[in-house]
Nucleic acid binder design. Structure first.
Lengths: 346, 346
DNA sequence: CTGAAAGCGCTTACAG
DNA sequence: CTGAAAGCGCTTACAG
């Protein structure tokens, strides 16, 4: 086996010989220039540039134990929330000189575990978004490598939490003021922290305003699942729904329109994340989850922790607030009923 | 500086001592087990497992020159086309034991160049999707590392091309049959291969069917840009538009609805990619770009090429076909005119 | 089939 | 401020 592409790249030794200094000096010119005379640094850097020398990260990593990489593990890049999160995280990492591995777990705990294990040696730390895994397992991985969790509340583990409680409470209040008396909350996956948090907020706010809340579990936070939930929502007599994310809400718009029902005339809808919300038609009323910011702040938390000793135990809460757009309106009077209650939407 | 987390991980030496064999034998038990007695392999693997030993990829990479990593460089993960592409690529790479770096270039050539340079030493090859960079630059990088380009046609460089020509021709024919006589093509970015290909297909098919085609450049392939193009499209007297992707088409739906115009009653629309097409309202008629498949096949091409000698020169064309949904209908008679021709949509 | 040893390209105490 | 040398954890000709 030939070692691919080795031929062309100059090593530290070549540069040292060419510049008439030792390897150590070349190394220092790049990593600790203040240890050297400005003149030496200049000389080394100049010949390095002339030869096209770039420090080999892999060798550096083996020697120092630091790779300059992080990994972002998430359930599904195709979900706009995670895409935005990733964009924010990648940009923040790049700004601080780190490269980013991506691991898409396809919403499964097993893939999550596998990726965390496999990438461990190649990264200085992990970002784990909306983990589907057991707490015990997460702690096991966190003990091995610095790890920041996004949207899961685990004591003593670095975490960034988007707290949408306030936004959902405001949304319920808005619906109450608009005259809605029965509402639904559509969530998924059942075990996810974000979902539980939002469900609880809706429940509490519903009680406070004296309106009844029906909880619906979607199979997955997807467009299809949202569409498929419309029948159940209508069957409860709800005139409005809040959903775990905008994708599900958008699915519900489609499901309602399948039945000839329009939003917000016949039914009101509130989504969450605010990433595709402004692109749907009609534009979604949504709780802003500050996705990109959450990703960037998680990177900061992780990289800051790398500079210090001791375990990583910072948590950061980003409040998510309600953004009112075009899918919330007065309750219909009388409440509409499902025009095709017996038909499966699939 | 303490070397982070080094303490816990057993090395090959520990395993060798514990199993009573040499380091070479432990190494071979993992990478070339058929060189050893089954009994030896079993013994080594057992003690490795007992000690929790996992081969250190970094050390392996330094020694062999192969990292087991690839990088996917793309303009914007937030664009559903690229998100789907990435998902396909990452899954295919993972299936073959490779980890994937992600580089988001924010649609700029400079970031693209930077990421390609910085990641070079850490990867065995690159996937470069819809490059915004000069051909010369791409060739420079391709000479350094195996590289497969997606949606750019560069002779002698490995590439996967989604050929949507047929789909766009069919779309124009469909519009002609529906009675449309003036249509628009809305594209971006101007220099992109996909955009040029689609623009040319629409132009040619328009000529063939005797209908006039007006070309519009959107600033960026985004929802906002699509929305902003509606005025220009209506001003040309077009009754239908084809767009470079679904996001732009969705933006046009919004822009039309801003003016009280409905789709497909007042205006017909054809998008491309078919990734969010089924989630828009109304559902978009779109040309399927087989995004996930393109990503997966590009990975296969790249990894296959790593096994052989010589330069990488395979190209693969994936045809994209028209999927008719709800945004294409008969031409309005007479053609509608812009209800607010002088107002800026922004 | 197995081992001893050199080497991958860096970094970093330790001297001077 | 600079250098000689050991070491990071593997792999792989080369012997036997």
């Amino acid at each position: 086996m030939t070692k691919p592409q080795k031929a062309g790249r100059p090593t530290i030794r070549i540069v040292a010989k060419e510049a008439g200094v030792s390897q150590a000096t070349v190394s220092r010119a790049f990593s600790q220039p203040d240890m050297l005379t400005p003149a030496t640094v200049a000389k080394v850097l100049a010949t390095a540039k002339r030869l096209g020398y770039v420090p080999n990260q892999i060798a550096r990593a083996l020697s120092t134990g630091r790779s300059g990489n992080i990994a972002l593990i998430l359930p599904d890049v195709t979900n706009p929330f995670f895409a935005a999160l990733m964009r924010g995280a990648q940009a923040a990492a790049h700004k601080r000189g780190y490269a980013t591995f991506l691991g898409d777990t396809d919403e499964t705990a097993a893939q999550e575990d596998l990726l965390l294990t496999k990438l461990a040696v190649q990264v200085d730390g992990f970002l784990l978004a909306s983990p589907r895994q057991s707490e015990e397992n997460i702690r096991k991985h966190a003990a091995r490598r610095p790890l920041v969790v996004i949207n899961r509340d685990l004591a003593d583990i670095g975490r960034v939490l988007v707290d949408t409680t306030g936004g959902f409470r405001d949304a319920v209040r808005l619906l109450a003021e608009l005259g809605h008396r029965r509402i639904a909350y559509v969530g998924a996956p059942r075990g996810s922290w974000s979902n539980q948090q939002r469900a609880a907020a809706v429940e509490a706010a519903g009680a406070e305003h004296g309106i009844s809340v029906h909880q619906i579990d979607a199979v997955r936070p997807s467009h299809e699942a949202g569409q498929a939930c419309v029948g159940e929502a209508l069957a409860t007599g709800a005139t409005a729904a809040l959903t775990v994310d905008d994708v599900v809400a958008q699915g519900m718009i489609a499901g309602l329109s399948d039945r000839g029902l329009s939003v917000p005339g016949d039914f009101s809808l509130v989504g969450c994340d605010n990433v595709i919300a402004s692109t749907t038609y009609p534009q979604l009323t949504s709780v802003d989850a500050h996705c990109a910011e959450a990703g960037a702040r998680a990177v900061d938390l992780l990289l800051d922790s790398l500079l210090e000793e001791g375990p990583l135990d910072n948590s950061l809460v980003i409040p998510g607030e309600l953004i009112v757009r075009g899918t919330t309106g007065p309750a219909p009077n009388p409440p509409i009923s499902d025009p095709r209650p017996t038909t499966d939407t699939r």
